[in-house]
Amino acid sequence: MVQTSTPAEVGGIPTDPQATRRRVTHRILWGLAAAFVVLSVFQLGITPQRFTDALPRASFVWDRMWPPAIDDGGALSTAVVESLQIAIVGTAFGILLSIPLALIAARNVTPFAPLSLAMKGFAAFVRAVPALIWAFLFIMAVGLGPTAGILALAVNSTGMLVKVYAEALEEIPMGPIEALQASGASRSHIAFQGILPSVVRLFIAWSVFRLDINVRYSTILGVVGAGGIGWELTRAASLSRYDVALGITVVIFILVMATEAVSQWLRRRVDDDTAFRVEE
């Protein structure tokens, strides 16, 4: 047999010292990972006993969970509406903030190269802080309520959207832009006729995807007091009304699934281009 490249293996036994070393590191790493898992289990105090101890409590909660109930329909529907508002407004302002920032962050569009790096770093920072933590920051600053939730989602969306918008911009094919330049098109022409058509679909797809994420967030922001249905959930749980908590969970389910359906419709709508037929 003729071995052409590096992995020199004869009968499954690695003869290449480098491959052997890689194999050993590989095993050591997996061993360490396994050890860390065991350590974690101990450190968290997870023992079978904790589960057996929790059994009576579990059956108590379970009994009180069924059947799921809606306690205060009015308050709940207000909360649902508030959640939707938070998600939509948060997404809308997130998009609004992200587009200009992405224009600065994209390497090929930025007015000033160091600014592009700075903007990307900023977006990475915003992304690394979870949305609920942002909600907390804004609650501390502007108080409890949906305003904090909207701010949190707008800012958190920016972290992601600036990144993906900028990446979409960076992948624009330069050829067509050059072609428009060569035909005497002005800069605004190039922006609208050359750049926009190439990125608009990706922008929409990502924005819709972000709306999906934001609806999920909007259902739990209330847990920390940033408005929406999450607040009803924590309240029911703290009153040990587990049937109501389950009812609210079902409503959250429906909300999340409905958004997924809507966003899928939107995305299909963007993707599909029904052909135009010329008829007599």
């Binding site: 999450g230 749980a237 959250i252 389910f253």
Partner: peptide
């Protein structure tokens, strides 16, 4: 997938109490 982790947590806290478990 449709259940956010935080919602699940609320129920687990009810059963196992406050804490990392």
């Amino acid at each position: 997938r449709a259940a956010p982790s935080l919602v699940i947590t609320v129920f687990f806290v009810a059963v196992f109490g406050v804490g990392p478990l």
